[in-house]
Write a protein that binds this DNA or RNA. Structure first.
Lengths: 140, 140
DNA sequence: GCCTATTAGTTTGATATCAAACTAAATACA
DNA sequence: TGTATTTAGTTTGATATCAAACTAATAGGC
């Protein structure tokens, strides 16, 4: 009944999804990789080269946060940073070989998560959920 | 179409809700109060006295995090900590007068947020949303 | 072609958060 | 009753995150 509960539910579900993903990554040897690092790798699997600013927009994190996150991924050997030859202000980020190797793992984890997430949720309910959430998102 | 989008939407909505609340609180003079502090105050408006462990459960944060959050609220004068006379391990937290004064503001902010959140969302859609999200939450 | 404004990214300082180690107190059990 | 275990909370150390200040480089107007 309490419609306020929905806010709480949304927070809890988000938290569960994050824990699920981080735990699955850790089980597969990716210790110390949080969801934001995962988001960056995920984005780079789709788009091979992104600037710091583009990553910031994609993952909805402050540019200074992105500096820290990407630097950690560089330290771990998953990505490299390279300055643009034309505009020396711009830094490109790209996956290394070690980074690209994560693709199948990421696909698997993503699929596992969706399987859990949508268990016993019909196709129609999924569509309905997406429709209502999009409406709410546009309200802000 | 992309059902994966729902996860992203949930994160974004949660983020918007948090920003909305923190901004409204700040506009009303509650600078430096984050959503977790708000959650603690909110819980104490409902239940006048809570232990640290109970707060930890209510707001889904580690007990060490709660120590830090409550200590900040003590510093700001909104709550007091008091040891149980019977079981000296237990610490009770309760609102001060200054803390209780926040009640009407919290009610107003909460109402404002819900008004924005559910704008153009029918009663039936709200029920449907709650039902589906509860199902998903039980999946984890 | 200069000075100014804008832009991309980094650095710095502060806070939230967690997990692990720790402390102190209560409980169990032998 | 005395030791071992459990429990409640704090401390410590690490990381993520943001905002503001900063740096370096490009772009714009005169």
């Amino acid at each position: 009944m309490e419609t306020r509960d929905v806010i709480s539910l949304i927070s809890k579900i988000r938290e569960k999804v994050n824990r699920f993903i981080v735990a699955e990554l850790a089980e597969n040897g990716l210790e110390g990789i949080g969801t934001s690092h995962g988001d960056i790798i995920y984005a780079l699997l789709r788009t091979p080269r992104l600037t710091m600013a583009e990553i910031s927009q994609r993952i909805h994190k402050d540019k200074s946060t992105v500096t820290a996150l990407v630097d950690k991924l560089v330290r771990l050997g998953y990505v490299v940073k390279e300055r643009d030859q034309v505009d020396a202000r711009v830094v490109y980020v790209a996956l290394t070989g070690k980074g690209r190797e994560l693709e199948s793992l990421f696909e698997a984890v993503s699929q596992d998560m969706l399987n859990v997430f949508y268990r016993n949720v019909s196709e129609q309910e999924q569509q309905e959920l997406l429709r209502i959430l999009e409406k709410i998102h546009r309200n802000f």
